[in-house]
Design a protein around this nucleic acid. Structure first.
Length: 941
RNA sequence: GCUCGAGUGGCGGAAUUGGUAGACGCGCUGGAUUCAAAAUCCAGUUCUUUCGGGAGUGUGGGUUCGAUUCCCACCUCGAGUACCA
């Protein structure tokens, strides 16, 4: 019987599907274990070999946990709202839902071929109304909540309203807009409903506000900060400009500190946590007020600065405002007006990208105005400079050139004073920016104090003067939640007198309307502006035609849609109870599954998905909907699989291609060529190449040894580089089990690595060899014979190593272990059932199809998937002798087999009397002999 | 610039707490089988060598009986981040 992988794999995939083998129950006597993959966006290109890497790893883990007696939840779904389907719709007019469905079907087919143990009965799609009903619901819950700093959690907005009613803002400590005003209960009660609503928007966890947003004209939408890389859009690299728009925002800043603290409680990769910490950007310091001294302006103007070094306040020799700072116009003196105006204009013209690229050039202008130092009362010149960012802190800094390198450079450049306030520190060459090992000097009441003492003391003094207070600042901004797109979740929002109203939970979902065109309207409204039927009837509680809008009972609906990260911020909870029509998930299922035990996915989601998902989780937890406030205990980032691109070299100006090693000094253009035209010895299939594109039809070739040899380069796997390798072909030619094991064999999971099929025959050969242990030409050849001690040893050391490897996510090394095991058992001619049966279970997480077939061959008629994992027994590994390495000065020179029960002295005697020892020493007398019984002998001298 | 991570044969990569460096696989070489090929099997494969050995894990130093592993300095590559006050 031959190892016919195609038949075997098709057979078992069908069996699993028909028998619901991997269906997880929401209640069980077994302990729960939740293994999750980051769900994919179903793109038109289908899966390439890079996608399944993480899925294979998590599948091995999930299958292993089933063998270990866990009730395993291992679901899969699709993040199916997104730009590519919409772009395709704009180009072709095909509805994005059709494109999406087609792509999902393709993905599903490809995934099925790899033999994953997903519970497909729990599949979710973020674009299905049954799913986004609950995304909309979470949105309304956020709208109905505020963040109470006294209890440090989100609470229902009714609680805030009743506080306003009884005592105004006096008793309220909340996260709210910076410009929120205080008022008394009487004032609140006298406000119109309209006014009250406006105030409440300043407190709600999702709110509508005029926001400075990142507008990307090319994509026709706003982008979140994490969707912008180096000042251009992450997708497509289009320019992004700042623009004020009425937008929904998420008050994620309320959770900044908890998002930071929570990182310490979860087992996520350190670099990823570091990225989140930087993104949240907590800095502890003080807000300080500098009064402006000016003849022309009123005395009550002041500049607020945020500083992390209030202890250095006596080192202030000037102040710098961002050119965009609102006070610039007001305080600039007549003499400086022109210079300041020119500078502001020049910086406004430069794109954010230019400004960032040009860090070296120091620029700025004096405003002519002065501020008063809060302690010395001396005048401090006020400058503007583009090294100060309008968007961070207060958009102004107190410059301490001796303690900050940017202030130092600025001062040097413009010849400003650099007072030294550090005891015994030389600042003639550079600023001293360390907080440690230094005492403050020339600073009045702060002299002799260190950073910590000085900070405490100066904050107290500032508070006394009413010119400052201790403050914690975060870099994390509230997240813009509106997108001017079609293919996203509609907001369950309608507008009464321009104020947003939520549609009640019982009427959700509000489904996406049909539109003729997927582009913005002629008046510049988002694509939903094209819908004819997009108004809310508050009496019938349904979406009706726009012509019915009377602003009495029928009102216009929101035209924006939600961003890509809305649906992915809570999907892991939906998997726990995916078809519940009454709740986002039942309390029982949420309490049972709790959280994700193992989450595997790419590190590129560090500041997007993974931060927003943690935010929503904490919010839903605060509101009593969830049992835990972190959704994933452990997270692993799988490394990217890179493509190995192939190149041909065309002679400049000709249609002639030169083989790689004949180029020498010829002038050639490298051209990407489809990797499927190249065999393992780098030789190009000339016929395939000629037929590839018309322009190559008549191509000429300069060959070496009758072959055309291509060049190679490792790059990201992408369609445009023609280096995409499709998993389907591998499954067809070698089988899914080979693909699974080979992807693991490539190297450590977290590491990026180039895809190279060269080694795949080794893994495939291993599976054939495994097969031959069980089957020969006459069928199964497993016997009930007692196993040899040797075979038991082989088995048990394999059990130990494989179990250890899986627990450590070191899947590459267990593939080697299996190879060694099968090599040894083959050499031992082992066909004992008591060895081969546990071996089949051991390997089943890695190569499930062949394992099922072997299991059936052993006489079982159920699936191997829940067979008990073999138990390691140390007894089989006990040795009576040890092969000692005999080292001289730490270098192993020969080995010696000695009984294990010898004493140190006996070992030393045998070794020293040995002939080879004498040759090694060449008559020298050893200074020392180290004997570690069971380990090593080292002779020094 | 800063913060991480990594440097081991021709290649992908192994090496539990410091204890036989190069497991396993690819590739390569030779052999068996075959009319031939594929497949399969066996042997060899870090470098060097006067065939006794000797050197060797990016470089230089240190700790140790012993270092790929620990410490210090440097070099190279990769990832992330970037005027955050």
């Amino acid at each position: 019987m031959k190892y016919n992988f195609n038949n075997i794999e098709a057979k078992w995939q069908k069996y699993w599907a028909e028998n619901g083998t991997f269906k997880a129950d929401n209640s069980s006597d077994k302990p729960k274990y939740y293994v999750l993959d980051m769900f994919p966006y179903p793109s038109g290109a289908g899966l390439h070999v890079g996608h399944p890497l993480g899925y294979i790893a998590s599948d091995i883990y999930a299958r292993y946990k089933r063998h270990k007696g866990f009730n395993v939840l291992h679901p899969m779904g699709y993040d199916s709202f997104g730009l590519p389907a919409e772009q395709y719709a704009i180009q072709t007019g095909q509805h994005p839902s059709i494109t999406t469905r087609t792509n999902i079907n393709r993905y599903r087919e490809q995934l099925d071929k790899i033999g994953f143990s997903f519970d497909w009965s729990r599949e979710v799609r973020t674009s299905s109304p049954e799913y986004y009903k609950w995304t909309q619901w979470i949105f309304t819950e956020l709208f109905d909540s505020w963040y109470n700093l006294q209890t440090d959690k989100a609470e229902k907005i009714e609680g805030l309203i009743s506080k306003f009613k009884t005592s105004g803002t006096a008793e309220v400590s909340a996260v709210c807009d910076e410009d929120a005003n205080s008022f008394t209960a009487e004032q609140w009660n006298s406000f119109t409903e309209q006014e009250q609503e406006k105030i409440l928007l300043q407190y709600r966890l999702t709110y509508l506000a005029e926001t400075e947003v990142n507008w990307c004209a090319a994509l026709g939408t706003v982008l979140a900060n994490d969707e912008i890389v180096n000042g251009v859009s992450e997708r497509g690299g289009h320019p992004v400009v700042r623009k004020k728009m009425m937008q929904w925002s998420m008050r994620i800043s309320a959770y900044a500190d908890r998002l930071l603290q929570g990182l310490d409680r979860i087992d996520w990769p350190e670099p990823l946590k570091e990225i989140q910490r930087n993104w949240i950007g907590k800095s502890v310091g003080a807000q300080v007020r500098f009064n402006v001294l000016s003849d022309q302006t009123k005395d009550d103007d002041y500049i607020e600065v945020f500083t992390t070094r209030p202890d250095t306040i006596f080192g202030v020799s000037f102040m710098t405002l961002a050119p965009e700072h609102p006070l610039v116009d007001k305080i600039t003196t007549a003499a400086q007006k022109q210079a300041v105006h020119d500078y502001v204009k020049a910086t406004a013209k430069r794109s954010e990208r230019e400004r960032m690229a040009d860090v070296k050039n120091i620029s700025g202008v004096f405003t002519g105005a002065y501020a008063e130092h809060p302690f010395t009362k001396k005048p401090v010149p006020i400058w503007i400079g583009d090294y100060v960012l309008a968007g961070y802190g207060t958009g102004a800094v107190m410059a301490v050139p001796c303690g900050d390198s940017r202030d130092y450079d600025f001062a040097k450049h413009f010849g400003l004073e650099i007072p030294n306030i550090f005891e015994g520190v030389d600042i003639s060459e550079q600023a001293y920016s360390s907080k440690d090992n230094c005492k403050i000097a020339n600073s009045d009441f702060l002299n002799g104090l260190d950073y910590k003492q000085g900070t405490t003391k100066v904050i107290a003094a500032l508070e006394e003067l009413n010119q400052g207070y201790g403050k914690v600042n975060f870099r994390l901004r509230d997240a813009v939640f509106s997108r001017q797109r079609y293919w996203g979740e509609p907001f369950p929002v309608y507008y009464v007198n321009e104020l947003p109203k939520m549609i009640d939970k019982q009427h959700l979902p509000i489904e996406l309307p049909e539109v003729e065109k997927y582009l913005p309207t002629e008046t510049g409204e988002p694509p939903l502006g094209n819908a004819n039927s997009w108004a809310w009837d508050t009496e019938r509680n349904e979406v009706v035609g726009n012509d019915k809008i009377d602003n009495q009972s029928v009102f216009p609906l929101e035209l924006n849609t939600m961003p890509g990260w809305a649906g992915s911020s809570w999907y892991f909870n939906r998997y726990m109870d995916p078809i519940n029509a009454n709740e986002f998930a039942s309390e029982d299922s949420l309490n049972y599954w709790q959280d994700v035990d193992l989450y595997i996915g790419g590190s590129e989601h560090a500041t997007g998905h993974l931060l927003y998902a943690r935010f929503w989780q904490k919010f839903l937890f605060d509101r009593g909907r969830l049992a835990v406030d972190e959704f994933a205990k452990k997270l692993i980032n799988q490394g990217m699989i890179l493509g190995t691109s192939a190149f041909v070299y065309r002679l400049e100006g000709e249609n002639t291609f030169v083989s790689k090693n004949l180029i020498s000094d010829k002038s050639v253009t490298p051209i990407h060529v489809d990797v499927s035209f190249v065999n393992t010895s780098e030789e190009l299939d000339l016929e395939a190449f000629k037929n590839w594109r018309p322009e190559f039809k008549d191509a000429q070739f300069i060959l070496e040894d009758g072959k055309y040899v291509v060049g190679r380069e490792v790059e990201k796997m992408s369609k445009s580089k023609y280096n995409v390798v499709n998993p389907d072909d591998i499954c067809e030619n070698y089988g899914a089990d080979t693909l699974r094991m080979y992807e693991m064999f490539l190297g450590p999971l977290e590491q990026a690595k180039p895809w190279n099929t060269a080694g795949i025959t080794g893994v495939h050969g291993f599976l054939k060899k495994l097969w031959k242990l069980y089957f020969d030409d006459n069928g199964i050849q497993v016997t009930d014979q007692d196993p040899s001690a040797e075979s038991l040893k082989t088995l048990h050391k394999t059990i130990r190593k494989v179990e250890e490897d899986i627990e450590n996510f070191s899947f590459n090394t267990s593939v080697s272990t299996f190879m060694i095991c099968v090599n040894e058992l083959s050499a031992q001619k082992c066909n004992s059932k008591s060895i081969l049966e546990p071996l089949a279970i051991l390997i089943s997480p890695y190569a499930p199809h062949i394992a099922e077939e072997l299991w059936a061959g052993l006489g079982y008629n159920n699936s191997i998937s829940t067979a008990e994992f073999p138990v390691f027994n140390q007894e089989h590994l006990v040795e009576s002798t040890k092969t000692y390495p005999i080292s001289f000065n730490g270098k192993m020179r020969f080995t010696l087999d000695l009984p294990m029960d010898l004493s140190k002295e006996e070992i030393e005697k045998i070794v020293m009397d040995h002939e080879k020892t004498k040759t090694q020493l060449e008559g020298r007398i050893p200074k020392k002999v180290i004997v570690v019984p069971g380990k090593i002998v080292n002779i020094v001298g």
